[in-house]
Design a protein around this nucleic acid. Structure first.
Length: 430
RNA sequence: GGAGAGGUGGCCGAGUGGUUGAUGGCUCCGGUCUUGAAAACCGGCAUACCUGAAAGGGUAUCGGGGGUUCGAAUCCCUCCCUCUCCGCCA
């Protein structure tokens, strides 16, 4: 959420940034200006009435103390009460409508974000390694997984449905090895603290990180008594909300957390997209990095967080490129995003395996996460950042496709071998 | 699931209908003292919103919502959360 005063005072800038995102400012802002005025008038009127009532009440107290009659004044405040109830409702109404508009405004792209109209205009920031060379035609992971007996989509469909997967034997072990390897790397070498959060959260948390109210259809909702719980679409939600409504110790910033969790996404509206293999699933696992940073250096933290995610791919020897998302391709809450795309030789393309974003104060304002700068009495909103490091399922895919051998086996990269307890996934003997 | 206790400012903790936004302590900030620091002492310190050029003025907030009352941190209803005991349970 943007700051109300900021939007009011910088309307032309906000409109320009919305256009850069490919949106029509009029559709997003609607009658913001009129509503803003209406809201303030309603509040002023309401508070004027309340002030009158308060003065009368004080007067009544004085009269009663000195034993005088206060009947007339009491009657007056009774009348006032009805007027106040009306004006209160009017003010609350305007507040709600204005807030609806405000919460629907996406974050403004940072000045360093390339302006573009589609994903085509994302800018490659850098590229690491080189694609592996094959003297045979590399296969996609869904063929490899089936031939090796480590991936079972048929039975997953039977027990759950489309967009679910069952991993068998060394396939299951590879998932576990990857997640352990990533968590160890981030906690040991990159200074992150590991957390294991709940996989279901309440609506307030989904609101805090921006999934609600706009994107409910992307989520799995779990009815629970009067209220709903939601399956987390990313660890970003529970981990960022850890500090919702808190004032953080300035000396402790930045706070760097990592979490391995399953992620659940309804993928409504993506029918027919990525139907082969396990690229797009209702449930996948991910190691997430989350940072709470001071505003003045949050962009340095974004660079570091992105490098931390890249380190996973480097240690696994996987070729990748880093893309700076253009204004049109960024998520709703983000001010700047880097996507890391890993090379998948079986499909002959780069595929997103991580997305690292700085949300600046956008989430912190919604979730009310603040800190007190040294020497100041006022609190300030922190900046929140997060990125996948990495999406484990897609890393699993990258290992299979990049390390497939002519004999049908999969070589395990050295860094992963202690976690696998093996140097390859052998081809089936048949 | 049953019974009971409790939720007050960044933290701890008073306060049961009328200048209580709220005593006190801690933290933090400024100052005095000190070679420097600590200690001690003095002073300051909630948040949001409305209004105003500013100084200032105003309104709301004692877990959330609703009610009683001229007036609620204080009384009533309801929801949420925490703790203790019992039951059940991985």
């Amino acid at each position: 959420m943007l700051d109300l005063n900021f939007v009011r005072d910088n309307l032309p800038l906000v409109e320009e940034k919305l256009r850069q995102r490919g949106m029509n400012p009029a559709d997003v802002l609607k009658d913001f200006h009129a509503l803003d005025t209406e809201r303030r008038q309603a509040i002023t009127q309401n508070e004027t009435l309340q002030a009158r009532r308060n003065r009368a009440s004080e007067e009544i107290a004085k009269l009663k103390k000195s034993g005088q009659d206060a009947t007339a004044l009491i009657q007056e405040t009774k009348d006032l009460r009805e007027q106040i109830q009306t004006s209160e409702k009017k003010a609350a109404d305007a507040e709600v409508r204005l807030r609806e508009i405000l919460t629907a405004i996406p974050n403004l792209p940072h000045a360093s974000v390339p302006v573009g109209t589609s994903a085509e205009q994302n800018v490659e920031a850098r590229r690491w390694g080189s694609p592996p060379q094959f003297d045979f035609k590399p296969k996609p992971h869904w063929e490899l997984g089936e031939e090796l007996g480590v991936l079972d989509l048929e039975r997953a469909a039977k027990i759950s449905g489309a967009r679910f997967a069952v991993y068998w034997a060394l396939g299951a072990r590879l998932e576990r090895a990857l997640s352990n390897f990533m968590l160890d790397l981030h906690t040991r070498d990159h200074g992150y603290t590991e957390v294991l959060p709940p996989y279901m959260v309440n609506s307030e948390s989904m609101y805090g990180t921006g999934q609600l109210p706009k994107f409910a259809s992307d989520l799995f909702r779990v009815p629970h008594g009067e209220k709903d719980l939601w399956l987390i679409p990313t660890a970003e939600v529970p981990v960022t909300n850890l500090y919702r409504d808190e004032v953080l110790d300035a000396a402790g910033l930045p706070i760097s957390l990592t979490a391995y969790t399953p992620c659940f996404r309804s993928e409504a509206g993506s029918y027919g997209k990525d139907v082969r293999g396990i690229i797009r699933q209702h449930q996948f696992q991910k190691v997430e990095l989350v940072k709470f940073a001071r505003p003045e250096n949050s962009y340095d933290e974004l660079e570091e967080l992105t490098r931390n995610a890249e380190a996973v791919l480097q240690q696994l020897g996987l070729h990748y490129r880093v893309m700076t998302l253009c204004t049109a391709d960024m998520g709703f809450s983000s001010a700047k995003t880097y996507d890391i795309e890993v090379w998948l030789p079986g499909q002959g393309l780069f595929r997103e395996i991580s997305s690292c974003s700085n949300f600046e104060a956008f989430q912190a304002r919604r979730a009310n996460i603040r800190y007190r700068p040294e020497g100041k009495n006022k609190t300030e909103l922190v900046h929140t950042l997060n990125g996948s490091a990495l999406a484990v399922g897609r890393t699993w895919v990258a290992i299979l496709e990049n390390y497939q051998q002519a004999d049908g086996s999969i070589r395990i990269p050295e860094a992963l071998q202690p976690y696998m307890g093996a140097d390859k996934i052998p081809a089936r003997s048949t």
